[in-house]
Amino acid sequence: MLAIQLEAESFEPLQALAEWHQWLAAELGLRPAAESHFLGRVRPSGAHDALLTALELEHYPGMTETCIASLAAAAAGRHGATAVLVRHRIGLVLPGDAIVLVAVAADRRGPAQRCCQELLEALKHEAPFWKREWSQGVGRWITGNTPL
């Protein structure tokens, strides 16, 4: 069971999780016994320690959504997870705001945790997003990901 959504505006992660829990309960009756969550937020400073005004996230409309769904389905299948939630921001994101929320529900903690970590890394390297840091009116494209 996949719930994938790109967010053009800021979103509240706890509210997103609550909505997902309601959906799972409606679909499954009982929610799975284990969940693992990852929430990523924008750092206050960029790659060169300059204070960020915002982080811009560009994506490839259509391909990005399909790619996330494919990565989520593959990870869930490999780990036997029951359900996956991905909310990912696009557009301008302010420091401190949520960029990405990944949640995985499974019957046990091991599959939930492993699936969540694997899917997050896959999103960072395989889903077509591009980040641009904005600082003092200057934008700079990011060419890699922060260390794990």
Binding site: G40, L57, Y60, M63, H88, I99, V100, L120, E121, L123, K124, H125, E126, A127, P128, F129, W130, K131, W141, I142, T143, G144, N145
Partner: peptide, 10 residues
């Protein structure tokens, strides 16, 4: 056909 610069999601 799309040319995709280095990806940086998540």
């Amino acid at each position: 056909l799309a040319f995709l610069p280095p990806i940086s999601g998540g």
